[in-house]
Write a protein that binds this DNA or RNA. Structure first.
Lengths: 227, 227
DNA sequence: CTGCGCCGATATGTCGACAGTTTTGACGCT
DNA sequence: AGCGTCAAAACTGTCGACATATCGGCGCAG
């Protein structure tokens, strides 16, 4: 089974480390690198066609992002998701997203509220199509939280939610087969959040967002293997 | 001016990267590496007496921890603290510490409450000595938040507060000359938090902790240079 | 005197190689 | 047949070196 590992393209002026990090992150989330698999530096270097230097730096970033765990002098293994970890992670995400919603309510311009509304309207239309679920899980849900974080105007928070923790969140969400009707409920909650933001009600926006994430967490953890 | 950079000891079986990361983190917090200074890889490698490989990995971690900023193909510079960044950072810390307090209230054992109380009693005694402020800023305050995070039993949260963000928080706090009487007030707030934890009142513990951090943030940001 | 372009020096990004340690696999013993 | 032992293979941690891009200084033109 020659696995589907894209080799690193040649016409890309980005740093090798960055390309490797993205490829490997994606491979971990999609399961190409199965949970618990050991990542051997020489083998990966050969497969990607690069030397071990940039590869090590990419792995170091995977480690920093908690996508792999390192045992000194024994290499790194792909993290194995557990229900306990999922609970911890989404409990943290709950307060962070809550803060994002609060700050969005404090800083959103009229135009940004309009764009949020337009986006939700589009999402509602999408939800009546056939492949609603896949679209929802793939992009729609992320886009909403993405935009909320951006409107909050807290660069550090944005980096945390949409950068440093984003892949890890995706990894845990991936384990989760979406329950029917969840997307509809989530969209309704999104609309309530935007209402609170439009009203400049920071407390309410934070509260609803936290309940929204808590609801997602409950559904996720209860389903997680081994829970 | 041959600056005071400790060279890397020889009898230390820890990884070179880890030692370098700690030394450089400390150098940044203490100001040995002044804000805005460019960190040249060959020069640092020579000064520490190591090759560029481990050094690069350490710098990559500094970058991940937001202690340096990287401009591709131009190297890294020590981050320059701004009031805006301090505000962003301590706003995040506010909700994270709040969560830690909440989870501490949910999970603390009787013995852990006793140890919290014992610690605060010691802190109060320390506060009547001469070098109260330096002791407070150096260890006492950190110890308290450290213990709260530990009692919360959320490993990811603990790592965030006491690991990944710890040095960055210290860096910003370092810019801050402590205001007289602040330590007293902070200690009183700590005691209130422990009371809430002892009562198993998670909501109250979170609330007080958030106000506690918000109060520290206000004092810090208003003093920050350029605010 | 000032602005532009060239050139050398330096640094980053990348690579290949070596030493010590861990893991693997076979072999022999119980 | 199962287990402990031991050697070979593989891997991690570290180092030194090369190519290319960037930065600073110099000369020259305007």
């Amino acid at each position: 089974m020659d696995q589907a590992i894209d080799t690193i393209g040649e016409a890309d002026d980005r740093l090798l480390t960055d390309q490797l990090f993205e490829q490997m992150s994606e491979a971990i989330v999609r399961g190409t690198f199965a949970a618990g698999t050991k990542l051997s530096e020489p083998r990966l270097a050969a497969q990607y066609g690069v030397s071990r230097g940039p590869l090590r730096e990419a792995i170091r970033r995977l480690e920093e992002r908690k996508l792999v765990t390192r045992a000194p002098r024994q290499g790194v293994r792909v993290v194995v998701p557990t229900a306990a970890n999922a609970l911890e992670l989404f409990t943290i995400r709950e307060v962070l997203e809550g803060l994002a919603a609060r700050q969005a309510a404090e800083h959103a311009t009229e135009e940004e509220v309009d764009r949020l509304r337009a986006m939700l309207k589009m999402h509602r239309e999408m939800l009546s199509t056939d492949d609603a679920m896949v679209y929802w899980q793939a992009t729609a849900n992320s886009d909403f939280h993405f935009m909320i974080a951006r409107i909050g105007r807290n660069q550090h928070l944005f980096d945390l939610l949409c950068g440093e923790y984003y892949t890890l969140f995706r990894l845990y969400r991936m384990q989760h087969r979406i329950v029917p009707g969840r997307a509809q409920r989530a969209l309704t909650e999104h609309e309530r959040i935007v209402d609170a933001i439009a009203d400049r009600d920071a407390d309410l926006a934070e509260l609803i967002m936290r309940k929204h994430i808590a609801s997602a967490r409950t559904g996720l953890v209860s389903q997680q293997i081994g829970a």
